[in-house]
Every structure is written in C-alpha cells, then in structure tokens.
C-alpha cells in the first residue's frame, strides 16, 4: 500500500431547496431577525465611480421565471480593488462592499442590484480582464450552485481582449454574458438555465 495524499474531499453540495430565503434573507420572508438581511445594500456611504443598476430574471428551460432563487454577486470597486481580507494590491473603496445578495421579487422573480461599474482586474498571467461581476445562483432543482459572470456590452474593446471571453469556443454564446443598457438606464442581465439562450456557466 502506498502512502496517502490525505486531502479532504469538498463537502458534497445539495440543493438550496425552496426555502433558501428563510436561511439567507429571512427578513424578506417575514422573519424579522438580525436587524436586516445581509447583502441588501452594497453601499455604506458615498461611493467612487459610476453607480449602476443591474436587473435580471433567472429562467428555467421552459422560459418560466424562478421565484425561489437566490442570486449573489461579487465584484471589485471602480478602481478594480476588492473589499476582501486577501486583497493585497491596495485599499478598496471603504463605502463599497462589493457583495450583493438578492432573493428576487416575490412575484416576478426579478433581481436588482444597486452597485458601481467594476474596474478591471488582472488575469493570473498579468493581462487585464474586461470589467466583470462574478455571479452565483442557487435554487430548488440546482444541485450545485452555478457560477457565471456579467460582462458589459458597452465595454466592447475590453471584451475583445479579455483572456476568458476570447477563449470561448462558441463565440455566438458570448451575448449570454453581456449586460445591455435598457431604456430606463439600468443594465439588463437575464440568466437562462437551459434552452437556446442558455447562459454560459463557469467551472471555476
């Protein structure tokens, strides 16, 4: 018998189930506790950079909106710095948390994030990535949380040079990762779990 490497296995994931909101956004479900839900606001004061709103809906393979999903986003500030303990490149905007969590609208399932346009962050090899926001989606029926990214349609030059976007085999699916400006000035980023418009999900 050889030696063993003795790494532990990651805990297996299980679905968040239909009541993830009880655990992660209890006030949204009417359970008044904690003095409010975490991730409701990404700003704790005046923030630097361009303030933006992102709205979207998570759709299943039949085109039906999910109303029991939870969407979380994580991003750097306008200068490309993360409000994280392991950010070593500088001090992020102290009034910006970089993290948002939304249970979606009770009736329509639409999620809304009031945030700032993220700055660019380098890829491990030093090249700059296009501005993007990391997204994580859990819901009933999703066995393992889904990662994707929001890029911005109005950052065409940066997108064209992005180390990840340029390596995607099916370039015709890239629009699934692009937030587009709507008539009301907000960005639209719908997520399709399945079907012809299926969002590109990341194994990252």
């Amino acid at each position: 018998m050889t030696q063993r490497l003795d790494y532990l296995k990651e805990s297996p994931s299980q679905t968040a189930g239909p009541y993830v909101h009880i655990g992660c956004t209890p006030n949204f479900t009417g359970i008044e506790i904690y003095g409010g839900d975490l991730g409701t606001s990404m700003k704790t004061g005046p923030v630097k950079g361009e303030e933006i709103t992102i709205k979207g809906v998570v759709y299943d393979g039949t085109g039906t909106p999910l109303r029991d999903a939870m969407v979380e986003i994580w991003q750097p500030d306008a200068a490309g710095l993360f409000a994280s303990a392991n950010e070593t490149r500088g001090q992020a905007d102290p009034n910006f948390t970089g993290w948002g969590r939304s249970p979606g609208d009770m009736n329509t399932g639409e999620f809304t994030f009031e945030t700032v346009k993220p700055g660019a962050v380098p890829f491990p090899d030093g090249r700059m990535q296009a501005p993007h926001i990391t997204v994580w989606i859990v819901a009933r029926g999703i066995n393992l949380g889904l990662h994707t990214r929001i890029y911005f349609a109005d950052e065409a030059d940066a997108n064209a040079a992005d180390p990840i976007l340029t390596r995607i085999e099916h370039q015709n699916r890239i629009p699934t990762l692009l937030a587009e400006k709507s008539a009301d000035g907000s960005y639209r980023f719908d997520i399709h779990l399945q079907g012809p418009k299926e969002t590109i999900f990341f194994d990252i």
């Binding site: 299943d60 393979g61 029926g141 990840i164 779990l193 990252i204």
Partner: peptide
C-alpha cells in the same frame, strides 16, 4: 432538476 439544469459544457478556467 430537469428544467433547471444547464446542458452545455461548463467553461473551465
């Protein structure tokens, strides 16, 4: 899971 499962390959990085 049937209608909530992505069918395309995940993008690995």
């Amino acid at each position: 899971s049937i209608k909530r499962s992505p069918q395309a390959a995940l993008l690995s990085f």
